[in-house]
Amino acid sequence: MINLLKAGKGILSSGRITGCLWLLIILLGFPLLNTCTSDTDKPTVKLEIRNHLFNPSEVAIPADTEVKLVIYNRDSSPEEFESYLLNRKKVIMGNSKAVIFIGPLPAGEYPFFGEFHPKTAQGKIIAQ
């Protein structure tokens, strides 16, 4: 990787471009700064997948607040939590849990579904 970057830099030795690269690195480093803010104060909502069904299938959360969604998959097969409106997508392996952060959301309904069993695994988040 470093060699590749060096190879790249060999060509891009002009100052402006190196500056751009630095900007990129700073941009990528930004997440690390953000981790300092702990998520303990965020409200946690628990959700369960059993038999390819979300339980509860309707989750009420406070509007305009960031929420930590903990999803337990009680099935032996994996499921993918997905929501187009929330822009969230995550594979949850069988018999395990996953953490997804959502919000802050304006009041409204946000449907989500299990990508692997979309006919049955359906639900929505209601921000109010």
Binding site: N34, Y84, N87, R88
Partner: peptide, 19 residues
């Protein structure tokens, strides 16, 4: 998007909806 989902980048309200 993934980093927002992991709460490592700040989450924000959508800028537009072209769905």
């Amino acid at each position: 998007q993934l980093l927002i989902q992991a709460d490592l980048l700040p989450a924000q309200e959508p800028l537009w909806d072209s769905s």
